[in-house]
């Protein structure tokens, strides 16, 4: 049997994201760039949540791993390390490495207890940032992070920053897509019934650990993209309450395919910006949509579109 590395949903998600490269041809609006940048960061973070959801695990720890990725890059910048490839690798690998021992600890927990432990993790990370001003700048954060350089070019202009964010989102999507496609059946078995999967001989902990570590790395990329956009690593960027946003993007977008986090993030980031300066009201919209999805439209945006499509054709 030939193992497929990518299915059509992954390809569609990548193509959708690639549109980001085309946008600068049409507009130079700072607002559009900023919204798109936010969306690219959000997509990566939501994909991190989505990987865990594939195994029926809901994680609030995304901001914690984002912080590790983001601060890694900011600290490296202080030592004048700005190479894009190096930074991307570091932003992925450092949180992923931290996730190895953490995963050994927290992956024994299932269901509600896993949710709680990830919530606690993101709280701990936030407190740690405040308690280590020498390393992270404490409540001031690290500002004036140097822009990355790609093949010697400094990615300093708005347009380059946007394109870079777009590229990072595609890299994250590729990693997420390959992982979840390659281990599709394993994850599905765990999602369906972990105990049954285990008794049928699946080495469950191996796939859960792999998923957790990759999800942490992907979250690290989101943190990197965020720091790169703001040129600042600040604790408020990694506030534990932002986990709720990423979870909302994923659930509302739909948990059935990778198009879920991509479409969900796009739609919600766009909607949030419609609120203009009253962005905090968007949370109410998230709340209502979450209720609607959970009660009435289990497949979320992506699932609903797919269902409509099947009806039409």
């Amino acid at each position: 049997m030939r193992i497929k590395l990518l299915g059509w949903t992954e390809v569609a998600a990548l193509l959708l994201l690639a549109c980001g490269f085309v946008v600068p041809v049409f507009t130079r609006s700072v607002l559009v760039y900023s919204v798109l940048n936010q969306a690219f960061v959000g997509v990566i973070a939501a994909e991190s949540v989505w990987i865990m959801l594939r195994m029926n695990l809901l994680s609030f720890a995304t901001p914690a791993f984002m912080a590790i990725g983001g601060y890694t890059v900011a600290i490296a910048g202080q030592y004048n390390i700005t190479d894009a490839f190096l930074m991307t690798a570091a932003a992925f690998l450092v949180p992923a490495l931290v996730a190895v021992p953490l995963g050994a600890l927290v992956l024994r927990l299932r269901g509600t207890y896993f949710v709680l432990v990830t919530f606690v993790l993101s709280q701990i990370m936030q407190l740690l940032i405040f308690e280590t001003p020498g390393l992270t700048g404490g409540s001031n954060g690290i500002s004036g992070v140097a822009a990355v350089t790609l093949f010697g070019t400094e990615m300093g202009t708005n347009r380059l920053v946007l394109e870079y964010a777009c590229g990072l989102a595609m890299v994250a999507t590729l990693i997420t897509g390959v992982l979840t496609r390659y281990f599709r059946q394993h994850f599905a078995a765990i999602e369906e019934n972990e105990i049954l999967a285990e008794s049928l001989g699946l080495v469950v902990w191996r796939y859960k650990a792999l998923g957790f570590v990759v999800a942490a790395g992907v979250a690290g990329l989101a943190g990197y993209s965020l720091v790169n956009m703001l040129l600042t690593a600040h604790p408020s960027s990694f506030d534990s309450s932002t986990a709720v946003d990423f979870i909302a993007y994923t659930i509302i977008g739909g948990r059935l395919s990778i198009l879920g986090p991509v479409l969900g993030t796009g739609a919600l980031v766009y909607a949030t910006n419609l609120f203009g300066t009253h962005g905090q009201y968007a949370q109410g919209l998230y709340g209502v949509l979450i209720l609607v999805v959970v009660l009435a439209a289990r497949g979320g945006i992506a699932g609903t579109i797919a269902a409509l499509w099947r009806r039409v054709s």
Partner: peptide, 28 residues
């Protein structure tokens, strides 16, 4: 709302989370 899905821990969690967002935005 909750009673329909009371045995699905992820669903109930999401429902209460949704309610929280609605309440806090309503108060805001």
């Amino acid at each position: 709302l909750l009673e329909r899905l009371v045995d699905d821990h992820l669903a109930t969690l999401m429902l209460t989370l949704g309610l929280y967002l609605v309440i806090s935005t309503g108060l805001l």
